[in-house]
Amino acid sequence: MRGLFIAFVAFLHSVSLYAGDGSVSSPFTVEEALSKKNNNMLCYVSGYIVGEYVNYSNNKHFYNMAPPFEGTSTYLIADMPFEYRLEKCVTVQLGATNTDICNLDEYPMYWNKKLLLQGNLSLFQTLSGIKNLKDFVLPEQPLEDETVYWNIFEDFEAKDGYKPISGNMYGGGVFYGEDNAIPWVFEGAALGETGKDAKWGGASAHLRLTESTSGSPGSIYIKEDKSNGIGYIRFWAAFYDTDKKGRIAVYISGDQGKSWECVASGLTPEKTLKEFQVLVNRPGNYRVKIAKSENSSDGVNIDNIRISDYLRPASIIRSEKDDTFCVSVNDGILSLSFTDKAEALDIYTINGSLVFSIKDCVKNISIPLLPGAYIIRSGSCIRKIIL
């Protein structure tokens, strides 16, 4: 029986997704737009506004996939909400007229909402983009501002924010962020301000060992509890200078730092800054720690940390249309009931990996799924759930 189920799942994975033709009634997905290789085609594309593109300097892309936003003239859109991988996105140059009414700094309610637009598929700052907008259909009002749930952001840029508590550079200290942010405790870590430190602006956290070349792995953690639980933890990381051995783990503590639970381990940085996302989704009061997960003396830089609030589980977080299907969950089985026979059904992880797909869907269907966050798509209806 198990073998038949595995074969059935493999068959579903092999079923191709419905392909758009670039018209207003059948727009390209972002994935389909990326496949056109910037051929200057004038077409319609539909995707979620997942962030903003900021700048390209020294062969490096600067962009924000989570608040706070700067309010630039270029969107990043993707097929999945909460996408954080730049290679899964296309840029959208809004133009002077649209920038004033659409940028995410002044209009954060557009973040993670769906957009329909028409323009030319063209290269932008070495990235696939959409230029010369001809049609631009914003998400309908009213819209929920999801940026308010991201209430911890630290970029280590505050002047004189780091107060060392030891003569040893990596002996420890406390970083006091701007705007009364929660302070970060440094252990086996220091403020990385040199030309060898990977950083977005003037500084990042530089994790090493508590005795510089020996001792326990370096870490940084918030000094006080975060209320409203923890949803996502996002941060950027890179190797220090020419180091290559550093690995990263993420921990949470529900007892004011007396004990720590590992929620992600073995995260591997790269030579340049790379963004990581960890879904925790716990209610309550927690502290967060980011640490090296091995005892080498190689350094790791951490920057631009963002932490969102707890997302209510076993519930529909967003629904673009309420009368297409109903969702229920019981003992790891996702059950869908359609008001009419659905033409197709696709289920993705929050990171965009397809886990279930079927073209001709029956009216009622049950699917076993592991705990996690998923996107369900059937026609024009898209829902996000957490099991």
Rank of each mutant, 00 (worst) to 15 (best):
S315P: 03
D322T: 15
I290D: 04
N120I: 07
P142G: 02
P217Y: 02
L345D: 06
C326G: 07
D179Q: 10
T74K: 07
Y170N: 05
W200P: 01
N301W: 05
G254A: 11
P283V: 10
L207K: 02
I302E: 02
K244H: 09
N55M: 11
A181C: 10
L267E: 00
S308Y: 04
G254P: 01
A10V: 12
I230Y: 05
T268E: 11
E261G: 04
N112E: 12
G379M: 08
S23W: 07
L387S: 11
L370E: 13
E31Y: 11
S253M: 00
N40F: 05
L143K: 10
Y251Q: 11
C102T: 15
L336E: 03
Y221D: 00
E343Y: 10
Y251D: 09
E154H: 07
E32M: 15
V327D: 00
F338G: 06
R312L: 15
L127M: 14
L94Y: 01
L86D: 06
T272E: 12
E187A: 01
V185T: 13
K199M: 04
D155V: 08
Y107N: 11
Y170P: 06
A264I: 13
L143I: 15
S319Q: 11
N151G: 05
N58T: 10
E270S: 14
S335H: 13
S227A: 14
K274I: 04
N39W: 10
M41W: 04
I350T: 01
F62N: 12
E87T: 07
F8L: 12
S227K: 14
L273G: 06
L4E: 13
S353C: 14
T126R: 08
N364S: 08
G3W: 11
L115A: 08
N228K: 12
I367A: 11
E320N: 15
P269N: 09
S57E: 12
S122V: 11
I222L: 08
G284E: 07
K321S: 11
L104K: 05
I350E: 04
V362T: 07
I222R: 00
G172Y: 00
K245T: 09
F338W: 03
V174W: 03
I386M: 12
C262V: 10
E140A: 15
R287W: 01
S366V: 09
M1K: 04
I307M: 02
L138H: 02
C326Q: 10
P217I: 01
S253D: 04
F175V: 12
E52N: 13
R282I: 13
S122G: 12
N301K: 05
I375P: 00
D105V: 08
H13C: 15
T74Q: 08
P183I: 04
S35E: 06
T213K: 06
G257P: 02
A189N: 07
G215I: 02
M169D: 12
K226A: 10
E294T: 10
E178M: 09
P269R: 06
G202T: 10
A344R: 03
R287D: 00
F276L: 15
E154C: 14
P368W: 05
A33D: 03
A158W: 03
L336F: 00
S328W: 05
S35C: 12
P27S: 06
G47C: 10
G22D: 03
D21E: 07
N285D: 13
